[in-house]
Write a protein that binds this DNA or RNA. Structure first.
Lengths: 338, 338
DNA sequence: CAAAAACTGGCAATCGTTTGCCATACTAGG
DNA sequence: CCTAGTATGGCAAACGATTGCCAGTTTTTG
């Protein structure tokens, strides 16, 4: 009856409180709540009723100590600002929530040291890591994976679980598309050289371009942000290429803006392609042709892999497809235009 | 010398290991690391050296249990997808990191129950909550604030720390701007009615419109997303208004797209305004006139407030300003156009 | 009807750290 | 030289759960 106090006290209701009130031992109370069949139905229901009445909420920290399961998953991204990562985070969040876990987000700023610091900092607090576009060297990742569950996104390392969106095939589709439109001289506007996907994309692009008989040059690296656009656009144009392939959409949109400022018509004078199909790439002007991957699904799957454990270490590849929009068009011979 | 094992074992180095190796009690080891002046300089340095040598990392969970400080902050947003929240998260992350804390992100989907569930779930795992656009009733928020540190973003509740971007003043600026352009008939495309800022914005808009002698009608509510755009645009146009004010930029951009599809020229036939100045509002077409606030700063300040404690409960207002872009223009009399 | 099996509930150790308190040793003051 | 005061380090009790093991009490089985 000392119920009406609605007290100012901060102390939360613990299992001890429940046990005392129910007249049983803590161990029994614990089992009544988490291991139902281990305790007599009447006792169990009594304890559960008391717990409900008292508004008992288990202290997750205290639970985590003996069990080793914290119910937290960490997601490390190189740049929270990049809308690309938000699809990932959204998918991961959804799946984590469904599994009763919460998500810790950290921004590594694409810096190896910061990534390591976060890893150290969080190691004891989370059940596993999703590492998006990790910049850590292969062996460090392998070592890490030995001591805690890790799954890589858009990075492949032998022996470590990973999921990539198939940007190799995406690159093929880009080349195919551009060549079909008559482009023979292309420029790749590179992202950070520490990024695995930059290497992958460039490799695939150049191979397929070769195979298709097109010329492609690599410019950069540029900052993979809107702000990287101007520099990339100018360098790209100076190569004389008729199509610019940007490391990602952020850069591509930045390029588009710069071209607009300079009065260069897209796609009449130059075509532009990106990767990721981020928020905004469908309503920038012109809308961007880009390689889309199922990011939400990626987020969900990554969390799944993390929670499922990984005996045959999975190396998943999610398909991509080229979303053709207004930023690419047929190459115009110099005299054919206006 | 059994160092070279580089073992497969997962067990992390604990304080016990350090203490044993250093030949001191755990308590001494603990103090040597966290309360330096409590222990003799030689002992202290010896312990620290051992700790370093063994690569000791304190288990944050175990630390959190007795101290009550977890070093985690939770940020609850109604929609991770909304780029508006990116800025907030980015700012919060930066400040949290600077303070040695990590960030837990949860998506409430604008649903009261889910928000409550997350709150319950995380209460014991975090040092405090940043609640963005909370949908919880005032008294629940007050109760919550009594038992754990809470700071509200874009919501004001007596007795609870809060920070809002001044959308009241932003609304004034919108009206002033539109009226100056000759608009006298306006429509507000409302967001979720459970959203505090929707109420605020509408109140300020209608007051200022009245004062300026303009007519304004309220339509909706609409989903505050790109997908809400078509419905909002169509209803808005049916009112005969010459300017549409959307609850947020997401909705506004959706509206812009719909108007484009319907062949309605912006701003020639109708002007469009949004709130938030999200990523993309500067490169959609036409670029969106919108009320911008310092979101990054907001994120940082929110975390500051949370960590600082709050004796005179702070109620901060951050200034906003209207960023005029291409989506608003002078009202054209029917005959004056083409 | 006795013995074995199955149920229930409790004791106590454990997870890794922090921290109040006590004991010892050493320093300084009178 | 004795006493009061101050470093220094250790013991052990938290923090709030989980869980292995054991002891009673059923129930089942032959």
């Amino acid at each position: 009856m000392e119920n009406g106090v609605r007290s100012v006290r901060r102390r939360a209701v613990t299992l001890h409180d429940v046990a005392r009130r129910a007249g049983v031992a803590v161990s029994t109370a614990s089992r009544a709540l988490s291991d139902p069949q281990r305790v007599n139905v009447t006792t169990r229901e009594h304890v559960q009723a008391i717990a409900r009445e008292l508004g008992y909420r288990p202290n997750r920290l205290a639970q985590a100590l003996p069990t080793g399961r914290t119910g937290m998953l960490a997601v490390l991204v190189p740049d929270i600002t990049n809308p690309h990562n938000f699809g990932l985070v959204r998918g991961a969040e959804a799946q984590a929530r469904a599994a009763g876990s919460a998500l810790v987000i950290a921004d590594t700023q694409g810096a190896r040291e910061l990534e390591g610091a976060h890893l150290d900092r969080l190691a004891s607090s989370v059940d596993g890591f999703v590492l998006a576009s990790s910049r850590l060297p292969d062996d460090e990742l392998r070592t890490l994976a030995e001591r805690s569950p890790v799954v890589l996104f858009n990075r492949r390392v032998e022996g470590v679980a990973s999921l990539v969106t198939d940007s190799v095939d995406g690159s093929r589709q880009i080349i195919e598309h551009l060549v079909a439109l008559g482009h023979r001289s292309l420029a790749y506007l590179a992202g950070p050289s520490a990024a695995w996907s930059d290497v992958e994309r460039w490799r695939a692009l150049s191979e397929h371009a070769d195979a298709a008989g097109a010329r492609i040059v690599r410019c950069g690296p540029f900052a993979p942000t809107l702000d990287g656009g101007p520099a990339a656009a100018d360098v790209g144009m100076s190569t004389g290429a008729t199509a610019l392939i940007a490391f990602n959409d952020l850069l591509a949109i930045g390029v588009l803006r710069r071209l607009g400022e300079r009065g260069i018509a897209v796609p009449a004078q130059v075509s532009v392609v990106g990767y990721d199909d981020i928020f905004g790439s469908d309503f920038c002007s012109p809308p961007l042709t880009t390689v889309a991957g199922p990011v939400d699904e990626a987020g969900r799957t990554l969390v799944d892999v993390l929670l499922a454990g990984r005996d045959p270490v999975p190396a998943i590849t999610l398909p991509t497809h080229l979303r053709v929009r207004g930023s690419t068009g047929p190459v115009l011979s110099p005299g054919s235009g206006a």
